[in-house]
Design a protein around this nucleic acid. Sequence first.
DNA 1: CGTTGTTTGTACCGATCGGTACAATCCCGG
DNA 2: CCGGGATTGTACCGATCGGTACAAACAACG
Lengths: 197, 197
Amino acid sequence: MAPRAASREEAVARLVELFRTHGYDGVSLSRVTAATGLGKGSLFNYFPGGKEEMANAALDHIDGWFETRIFAPLRAVPTASAGLIAMLDGVEAYFHSGRRACLMAVFALESHPNPFSARIGSYFRAWLEAIASAVERDPQASGRAQDFAENMLSAIQGGLLLAIALNEPARFTNTIERLRRDCCAHLAPCPAMASPS
Amino acid sequence: MAPRAASREEAVARLVELFRTHGYDGVSLSRVTAATGLGKGSLFNYFPGGKEEMANAALDHIDGWFETRIFAPLRAVPTASAGLIAMLDGVEAYFHSGRRACLMAVFALESHPNPFSARIGSYFRAWLEAIASAVERDPQASGRAQDFAENMLSAIQGGLLLAIALNEPARFTNTIERLRRDCCAHLAPCPAMASPS
DNA sequence: CGTTGTTTGTACCGATCGGTACAATCCCGG
DNA sequence: CCGGGATTGTACCGATCGGTACAAACAACG
């Protein structure tokens, strides 16, 4: 059932998916060995801190991905609307159009507070600040940047939650599409929409 | 640490809070006995089906509360804006202004799919339909009822998630306040706002 | 080929998991 | 005061939990 993970990085990638769908408590070491094809020997060689280190490695992986692919671009983008729409595209792709849950959200809700609460908070705070920094660059909405960011991130996470809970990925893509329209409606220079369909 | 629960109903109330903050996997029978003051004997007398029946009793409790206090009123209300604002007030109070998580959301994310997926889906679907049925009664927005409902519920759940993840309840109350303004902005007869501040 | 350090499978550990059995206790009608 | 059904604490069950110990297998390099 489990093609053996060839490297620590590949093991981390599988851990991410494992924690994403089963939560921290729902992932047992036997499940990890099954999903990675690695025995306990290798596992504790890669992750001497045990399960908690595995989870932290998974969170590290996500932190890194979002920082370089989502947050940093947002902070550097010249115009808010284009930057935010690019972010929405990236997020839609990352979450497989609503078929994949957000690991940070899973860990945040599963048990709270928990050992990961601090870094989960940092993740969402970084996301909020990245959005706000882009909006502040917008001539029309710079005063409402905090509010705009809070609204947008709430919608993303809520839409994703609904998509998972209902097993209807379209709940997420609909939400993303609404947010795209919001960008065009409330921010200054809206790039031509591809196909309003 | 635990004043003994005097009735099955009181035990269920404590189970709700227990599952809400620790998730299904995070609640062990020893935790249940500690939180309810009930030994295993009483526990399996009240809930012969064991932990799964305890969880279902907790979900029943929430289903009932929302059905009578939120969903049914929404379906019966004459004007959409007044009904939705009453719903927002009720929801804000129920979730303790963002200090309390949504048990349905916790169970939905913790592990998916899981034995409770079907009823979790029913819960969110009922909520969506209740909102939509109210909006359909609105002369201005009746055509966008589905979209309006999806957007509103996403925002509620996302705002709650952010409040929990950041341990900043204001993230939730801000979101609720934004939704109140949305109601006044996009629905026909807006009752006078208390204080636009 | 030999040696040295890393990687790996396996046996094992105490603790805790959800659940059962059952005897003691309680409560209440007669 | 007594008898019988409901309630309850406790001892116990096999399974699984996360984690450790360690020896065999392996790799790299001289």
